[in-house]
Design a binder for these strands. Structure first.
Lengths: 339, 339
DNA sequence: TGTTATTTTGGAATCGATTCCAAAATTAAG
DNA sequence: CTTAATTTTGGAATCGATTCCAAAATAACA
């Protein structure tokens, strides 16, 4: 049904001016007389003319498009906010995003980059779906690139990552300032794992304890695997301690789910018998659990936005690592012993 | 650092042939002599030449790009598979996706469409994040459009939606064939709600019961609100019945979470005392709950793929509504009374 | 009013590919 | 060894915008 689209020539002819003038009107060039401007605009309106993006891009060498390469969104749906932040920021500046999920496949990743370069994207965002080190081919150096939720060993790109230490510290502080003294932590991976989350959060945990002159007790730190089942087991052993914790910091919301189950199986009430704090602010869990789970939120949306904004300030600044704070989302899973 | 990109002219000069010949090599035209072909290809290789997508699109009037307009992905993260299906299918055909989430804002939706038309997308996918009726402006008629997980009242587009009735039927059948006879259903909305899911699933439920000569018992059908809290309450009233159900069909996994909580609070074991089946196959819940939740999966990925495939078969066929079956994902929340 | 300075305009050249047509090269036929 | 038929090639025209430059129109000034 689509009636053939008009070109700038059609408009020029109809308005009885030159193509140059139409172009100037389109681009709000000041050097066009008000009367002709409105004449041209009238014609543009009347004919419902829309300039061809392709032609414009070819001539100006600007695609008004960014590439967004993501790895494995699917496995971590709560990270969609990453995409959302980037998309919204881009949209506000009249840019669109070419998005491809490379599914953690290095080859696909390279081909995605190629397709995007072919299309003259003005920049690339490479986003991991959880905080990790990544290694990117040389090809990524040929266009402004910013990393989200990840970094490379050589630090050649500007990157943004969540502040795991601060998050661990704040989560623990929250428990401490509510009057809890025996606070346990269930890590989502071993401290030697290649993922920075576990080690960072643990460090924050220790720092917060030290602030109030407490030592991290070995029996209170458990190593889980990020899933509910592992946390279930960890919680059981924690509560079997001679002097069990009154509060548990679970390093993922999924683990908090397991902890909830374990506590209930022991007929313990949350938060009256044991307080719990999670990590990720994964709506499906944190909001739906009973009682609703207090948790640390990952700054996904903020990092996505920031990445686009970096790209927009084109003249690539020296590669820096930006660290984003994780806010505490307070719900009902923490008992207030003192204020 | 990006060294200037070569043009087809550069290649032609270097290979000592005309631009036409280079173009023919690029497009695998048969009419080029093997010896010149390899000569040209060598130069292309050596200079790492990549044709400009913009120039090519302008000339051929083909953008190799589809638009994907989504509404409110954010609120329903498990629907990302919709995007994933579309993206993968597009990728396999050398196409890329321009994705924008219009956030349920009709104005933004229109502007997104405009931006996409400007860029000469070859088709548009409009995806709702849960099954619903939508209304789209006339502008959508100007380019091949296919709807995913939604439909318009006037049925002017080809659309794909999940088969709610089949899903409701299969979920209930599963419970029945395991030997359960008093099976309750907790709907995710009232039957009069504008969302087809509740009514469809309920109809399937009734059909399955009728197949084995059972009547739907009014006291066994509860109206929830899709969230855990409402299902918690519903479950309590179900179990307080003189003759409580031995199986509960929860129309969302989030509600199943509430049902789990309620049953545990009554010291009832799943699945030994009560069996539960969910809906959505939302990994965070279904896989992490204990015991893992049997549930109906929404065919998100399949619908996304299908949409792209429809678009690829360009000559738009008459608008049809395609209904996608929802598979049963069997886990451990159903007790087998008989086989 | 005649000059000069300034504002506004038209249109050719350009971006980098594809495509078409006529010319050149090659092959086949006589 | 011609001539005709066929294959291969070069390059101009084209897609639809922007941009630059010179020309035309207008304004300013004496």
């Amino acid at each position: 049904m689509s009636t053939k689209r008009y070109t700038i020539q059609d408009i020029a002819r109809q308005a009885d001016v030159g193509v140059g003038t139409v172009s100037r009107v389109l681009n709000n060039d000041v050097s066009v007389k008000p009367t002709t401007r409105s004449k041209v605009q009238a014609v543009i309106q009347a004919m419902d003319y829309q300039p061809s993006f392709m032609a414009r891009s070819l001539r100006t060498q600007k695609s008004n498009t960014f590439g967004f390469i993501a790895d494995a969104v699917t496995t971590t749906p709560f990270a969609v906010n990453l995409v959302k932040g980037a998309q919204d920021a881009a949209w506000e500046h009249g840019k669109l995003l070419l998005i491809v999920d490379a599914d953690n496949n290095p080859e696909m990743r390279e081909r995605a980059l190629e397709s995007m370069l072919e299309r003259d994207v003005e920049g690339i965002i490479y986003a991991a779906m959880f905080h990790q080190e990544v290694s990117l081919s040389e090809a990524f150096g040929t266009v402004p690139t910013v990393l989200v939720d990840c970094y490379t060993a050589d630090n050649r790109f500007t990157a943004s990552v969540p502040d795991e230490v601060q998050a661990g510290r704040d989560a623990t502080r929250e428990l401490l300032r509510r009057g809890h003294e025996r606070v346990a932590i269930i890590l989502n991976a071993s401290l030697e794992s290649p993922y920075p989350a576990a080690a960072g959060r643990y460090q924050g945990y220790c720092e917060a304890l030290e602030e109030v002159n407490l030592q991290p007790m070995p029996e209170l730190v458990q190593i889980g695997e990020g899933n509910a089942a592992s946390a279930f087991a960890c919680t059981l052993t924690l509560m079997a301690l001679p002097d069990p914790p009154t509060a548990i910091f679970c390093c993922t919301d999924r683990m908090a789910l397991g902890t909830y189950d374990a506590l209930r199986s022991l007929n313990l009430n949350i938060p009256n018998d044991v307080s719990v704090i999670g990590f990720d602010n994964q709506a499906v869990i944190a909001e739906q659990l009973y009682p609703p789970l207090s948790t640390m939120a990952l700054p996904h949306e903020a990092m996505g936005r920031w990445a686009i904004e970096q790209l927009l300030e084109h003249p690539s600044p020296p590669p820096t690592n930006h660290v984003f704070p994780c806010p505490l989302i307070s719900r009902a899973s923490i008992k207030i012993l003192k204020t």
